[in-house]
Design a protein around this nucleic acid. Structure first.
Lengths: 253, 253
DNA sequence: CGCGCGATTGAGCTATTTCAACCCCTGTGG
DNA sequence: CCACAGGGGTTGAAATAGCTCAATCGCGCG
């Protein structure tokens, strides 16, 4: 038993090395030596289970987290017990960047399924980046990328209808899984319809109806949490706004 | 004439120094010497006019921009000539952080009224931050803050109704202007109703009707672009969701 | 002084929400 | 091994917030 545990931890450790690499050092530029320095500060992860918290709103900010396997949702309280789901985080993705500013977490992170998560103490990472210019650059890129993604989401919530939102959501999952070497067209949702709706600014019922409709239209197969995207191109067409968006505004000047 | 020009530029230069200071070095931590080094790389600004572009979508990323006076909107094309307004940027605010990742601007920035804008070549800033840990930290905070703001916006678009959105928008302007020493309750809008609606994910007509209603309800005075917020507390109550939001979801675990 | 665009206002229209009932897994305990 | 409870999911019907269309207004500018 303890033997098994050790092996298991080590395998996580190794995998963790990989995920740190791909998240933080995407386009290379790091010397082997630096990669190891970076890796040294990454804490090995225990497996976490559905419902476990990475951190809660109000917690002091100490670390960034990288999803190795599994998935995590982040959410912030809105009013009166309600919550806004801010994101779903898949393997290779990083969590906690929004807390650097105030040094306090403004949202909570909860594990959606059994997951392995790496922890990166931010203070140590910061020291490291001060000494490795290319790593500093990666950090800037990482933060900037997060802004870009939020921007995409703003566009989604501001301009797209229910159909387009769900299609965009499915495609986003598809692409992100694909990037990690998983099937882009056959996967299991780790989040509930309710959480999807919350994330997309839609009622649960709307999400449910759309799943049904998409299936009827031959775009996908749905069996509970099991999703198969049958017609990727059609979904893409949906998102691009073949059902055109509002606002044809053109600005002078 | 050339005499006047020199004076004018110099005054901008000085003001620019201030705005750089307050944006990048908010909670101090920079030695006087470092502040000067930072200031040395900031390019002095020519006054820009309504309709002028700071950059356009697709442009190579070179610099960040800080609004000294005036205002700027950023926007991205959505589909078919439509655009999504991503933000309005007031004095002291920084523009362009989202472009670091891809080294290309994903959105355009256009000046809404005669404005003075400082330019900070990012490459030079990056060098500087590598040598000044506290400045590096400020940069991280700056980027992180931007993420936090986007998150707030997601919450707004995902969970709030028209009334709450407009109230939140007005209060945001109010607070940001106040932070710069301007009146929090009496100001001029530099953007059109159309742009406000676009930004908030509402139709122009809805914005217009809400302005009228808010005025009828004694929350504010509206005269074209001239806004006077009469009852700040009431507006705050509106945003907080006295008109409660949807979604009472509580998660197990 | 007239043109034109931004803003306002009115009146239906519709996408989406809300409310409500029901179904179907899943897991639990007898 | 089966009955039952409970939560998530689906489906239908009614309600509605906000959009669209359309007309009018009025300021600002040439």
């Amino acid at each position: 038993m303890s033997q098994r545990t050790v092996i298991s931890l080590e395998s996580i450790r190794v995998a963790c090395k990989n995920c740190t690499l791909s998240s933080l050092c995407l386009p290379m530029g790091l010397a082997q030596e630096d990669v190891e320095r970076l890796d040294d500060i990454v804490k090995r992860a225990r497996p976490l289970h559905r419902g476990d918290s990475l951190f809660r709103e109000g917690d002091k900010f100490r670390s960034l987290y990288v999803v190795k396997t599994g998935s995590v949702k982040t959410f912030a309280p809105s009013q009166e017990g309600g919550e806004q789901v801010l994101g779903f985080h898949l393997p290779g993705e990083i969590i906690g960047l929004d807390a650097i500013d105030k040094d306090v977490h403004a949202c909570s992170a909860r594990v959606l399924e059994t997951s392995a998560i790496c922890e990166i103490p931010f203070a140590r990472l910061e020291e490291l980046t001060a000494n490795i210019p290319s790593l500093q650059h990666q950090m800037y890129r990482l933060l900037s990328k997060e802004i870009g993604q939020d921007t995409d989401m703003l566009l989604l919530l501001g301009k797209k209808n229910a159909e387009e939102r769900l299609a965009a959501f499915l495609l986003s999952l598809s692409q992100r899984l694909h990037k990690r070497g998983l099937s882009p067209s056959d996967f299991y949702l780790s989040m509930s319809r309710h959480e999807i709706g919350n994330y997309l600014g839609l009622a649960v019922e709307t999400v449910s109806r759309l799943f049904t409709r998409f299936q009827e239209d031959g775009l996908m197969q749905v069996d509970r949490k099991h999703i198969q995207l049958v017609d990727l191109p059609a979904l893409e067409a949906l998102v691009k706004g073949v059902g055109q968006g509002r606002d044809k505004q053109q600005q002078p000047g």
